[in-house]
Design a protein around this nucleic acid. Sequence first.
DNA 1: AGCACGCCGACT
DNA 2: GTCGGCGTGCTC
Length: 717
Amino acid sequence: MSSENGRSQGKPPEQGEQLALIRESVREAKAKAPKAKPRTWRNAPLAKTLPVARVLVDKGPVHLDRLWDYAVPEELDADARPGVRVRVRFGAGTRNVRGGRREGGGLLDGYIVERVAESDYQGPLAAIAQVLSPEPVLGPALYDLCRSVADRYAGSLADVLQLAVPPRHARIEAEPSPAPLPPPGAPEPGSWSRYPAGPAFLDAVARGDTPRAVWTALPGPHWPQELARAAAAALSSGRGALVVVPDGRAAARVDAALGALLGEGRHVLLTAELGPEERYRRWLAVSRGAVRAVVGTRAAMFAPVRDLGLVAVWDDGDSSHSAQNAPHPHSREVLVQRAVHEKAAFLLGGFGCTVEAAQLVNTGWALPLAAARETVRAAAPVIRTVGDGDEARDAAARAARLPSLAWQAAREGLKHGPVLVQVPRRGYAPRLACERCREPARCGHCAGPLEARDGDGALHCGWCGQETRGWHCAECGGVRLRAQIVGARRTAEELGRAFPSVPVRTSGRDHILDTVPDRPAIVVSTPGAEPVAEGGYAAALLLDGWALLGFPDLRAGEEALRRWLSAAALVRGQTEGGVVVVVAEPTLRPVQALVRWDPAGHAMRELADRAELGFPPVSRMASVSGPPEDVADLLAAAELPEDAEVLGPVPLPVTAAGRPRRPGDPPPGERWERALLRVRPGRGAALAAALKTAQAIRLTRRDGEPVRLRVDPPDIG
DNA sequence: AGCACGCCGACT
DNA sequence: GTCGGCGTGCTC
């Protein structure tokens, strides 16, 4: 890790510096104009000090992403503190009309951002209509955070606020929060001792320093306790801690670990499952400083933890770290910003390693935190690979559609404990098979699985990518194909027949098992839903290699490795006889990284490739999508940074009618295009600002449809 | 987004 | 004259 006064004290990879500068210069220019004495239409009595409130109007016109000055009437002076929710009149109807004055315009919700003595605005100020609640929910730190997140993602402040500030429940606000407990003592390093730099990281956090680390976690069940200890170290320094994990299950485990370490009352769990009222209750406890430590899913990334001492993210490669709502901030990126702005320590951990994490290390912004090679080797299971084409010789293995090696590993493992079988998620990448005899459709060049991309009828090999024309079944001569999705249930049935004396359990999207007992059983699971085995699995079979690696995405390899590592980390270490069999081409890079248990090395090599190709995160990208003429319009109007490269636009696949639409897809039947914009990393803020400005101009003039902007588009490739 | 103002042609 | 088309610009 690095420390605040250490060598790696650098700039974060991306900042809203550019926008901040622009705003600053606008403010300076305005400051030269004589400031008017604040006056209202009716000359109503104003607050004696700081009579002007700078208000962020929520849900106003999207492009009016700025603060508005309102007068603070004397009777609202006490309640109208920075951060409170207010209602204000906003709209053309509020203006003076001829001789008389009329109050028109709608009442809009907003937040007081600050109170100032004078306004830059020359005209008469409208008065704040109402203070909705005296609770200051948008404090200065949270406001600054939302502002910089909006800037980075070319989104509006109001959109970010929607993610960051939960809706109000008056009844909950009326309840008092519990009294804050004194800081706990510094925690023992515990299993952090397995990492050479672990205890030092913990010490630095406990001392009040701000070390930053990218942590490659050892396989096994210790990570929730390790995250809890890191959080406890921050608390012991008198500061707060925030831990963001991908899903509710992981959050519950860290929550339990925090409870075991700190008792009750020093931390809260913040997840969507709580329901709006309980969530607001806990959020308020954090906002009021009654609780200093938070663990939660992505919405918790904005949690207004007081005097933040540590931010931590677990498994940042999991796609649920990206918010579903515009402008789609990613918890890793938001917490990088918070670590810098709020001067907190930073811990990014997982079994895998994303290229973005590798980039943080590569730029020297964070230091690697990993165990010694021999510690890793002992803790990890033995990994064996088997090509998908391997013929099974045993009849039983063939019946279960398992290669011999996988079948043997399962049979052997079942003598010692539960065996995990990871299968592709239904609909993830449908495998094609002969409609008549069910023989899988294979590529004529390399025997890889054929896939139908884009639904345009063309068949491509999932391995070598070559197109196959005029397919016919090698077995029976059939010419019609069907999608053969072998889901968890079918696999479970087949395995049940192959191992009739062993119970078979399944865990998948709709029915997730948390844990399984330490007894022989076959546990079939889709990626991400793997139950924890109490004594570790004796073996695991990873059967979805072709599906994961065949996915046409820049991250396919990284994502396959991440899912394999997550499953394999639940298996006993090799010293306890743990074995993993992965059905995938052994020459492929992610497969080799799994065999060597070297996620960080894999990420570094991926990063080097991306650098060569100019792909993110070595460059910064944004996408513009919409009807072709609107995309062209916006690109023509935008004053892009000089070095910005425009790739495309290219047509997007048309959304088929009736098909469930994923967010970001064009409306059914519409022909949309997408352009990608690329700049070097330091210019990301300038790119976002240019796009946002161009979009705002379009919205003001109301020419054409608004286009969709997305910074860090997820599906490049 | 709304809403008002303003500068044009056709109507009681 | 003046009613109302919608193009343009502002909203503290």
